[in-house]
């Protein structure tokens, strides 16, 4: 019986250990791994196509939201989880560059990219897409009440829009932070305080993330919502038509153009990448017309490349924001934490 017990012990302890050793890394030089955030999407057909063309096996590793994914990349700098990282936001750019996470690479396709987005002259990272974070409103809500919707950022603090706006917390949400930056860019270093003090007095609702703001609080996103103005994206009017679940001729939501702040997402080759040759090919692909043209309908962001045709629903329903609010990445990097702290004191405390 003792013998049997020991046989059992061997079974339980040794076998899993062998299993661990056996199942270990099985990465071949043909693999290229893209590390990215949860919102990254690519269609199966595009993915298979790039695999056929390049002879690579493209694997995708999604590691949480944009902040978490970048934190992981910073923690593993030099011994990265994969070869290419996609999803550095403009507001995290300086942190990523300071963390020495990326190798430099200047892809040939960069010539086709709008130079306004190319913010890192050394090309540790290259721009892949942009999107505009804006205040948007529920058109139906305003028309059915015969009210004039807000047209400017400054309108949001008018008495007649009191209690109608929901924003995300810049400490926890990417669009929330972008909107805070929009107010800093519009009002300047100190006057932005006044805007938020007034918005707070107007009973602005602050949510932790976009999901709650859009899907539960915004009247355009939920039948139970009570706020007809929300901070979201300029592509929402197109998305609202595309995902209406039926055919509609007019988007139920609209953008307030001068509230928009430009977000840019970057990609780069991770320092210490196992397959740096494959990594370059992957970056080239991210900037290719084929991939860029697919981004609007899969990720609801706009291509960084110029001259890429947009899907009809975007051409028809998503407004082009030609002069969004912007701030230099270095200024954002140096002040972001302080601004968020000040915002918290003004709006939450």
């Amino acid at each position: 019986m003792t013998y049997r017990h020991e046989a059992f012990l061997t079974l339980v302890v040794v076998l899993p250990a062998l299993g661990l050793a056996g199942c270990g890394s099985a990465e071949s030089p043909k693999d290229v791994v893209l590390v990215t955030h949860d919102s990254f999407v690519v269609s199966k057909s595009v993915r298979e196509e790039v695999e056929r063309e390049t002879g690579l096996r493209w694997r995708i590793l999604q590691s949480g939201d944009a902040g978490e994914a970048l934190t992981k990349a910073l923690l593993t700098a030099g011994n990265p989880e994969g070869d290419v990282f996609f999803g550095v936001d403009i507001d995290l750019l300086s942190r990523a560059l300071a963390g020495n996470v990326f190798d430099t690479y200047t892809p040939p396709q960069l010539g086709g990219v709008d130079p306004r987005y190319d913010l890192d002259p050394d090309h540790h990272v290259v721009p892949v897409d942009h999107s505009e974070v804006c205040a948007i409103y529920d058109r139906t809500w305003f028309t059915s009440r015969h009210l004039v919707p807000p047209r400017h950022l400054t309108d949001l603090v008018l008495r007649r829009y009191r209690g109608l706006t929901v924003v995300e917390n810049p400490a926890t949400s990417t669009p929330g932070l972008a909107f805070l930056l929009a107010t800093v860019a519009h009002y300047g270093d100190f006057s932005w305080h006044t805007f938020w003090e007034e918005l707070r007095a107007d009973k602005v609702l602050v949510t932790d993330g976009w999901e709650e703001a859009y899907n539960a609080r915004f009247t355009g996103g939920s039948a139970h919502g009570t706020y007809p103005i929300v901070v979201s994206y300029s592509t929402d009017p197109a998305a609202a038509v595309y995902f209406a679940g039926r055919k509609i001729e007019r988007s139920p939501v609209a953008v307030i153009p001068d509230t928009c702040f430009r977000q840019i997402e970057f990609a780069g080759i991770l320092r210490g990448a196992r397959n740096s040759k494959g990594a370059r090919k992957l970056i080239d692909f991210l900037l290719s017309e084929r991939f860029q043209a697919g981004m609007p309908l899969t990720m609801f962001v706009l291509p960084a490349r110029t001259g890429v045709p947009l899907p009809p629903v975007f051409r028809r329903f998503a407004p082009t924001i030609s002069h969004p609010l912007e701030l230099p990445a270095a200024k954002i990097g140096a002040n972001r934490d302080r601004w968020v702290r000040e915002w918290t004191d003004i709006v939450i405390r």
Binding site: E211, Y214, S222, A239, F243, G245
Partner: peptide, 12 residues
Amino acid sequence: FRFLGRPGELNA
């Protein structure tokens, strides 16, 4: 979670 993170009525 992925569906919840996308805009539009059908996704929600």
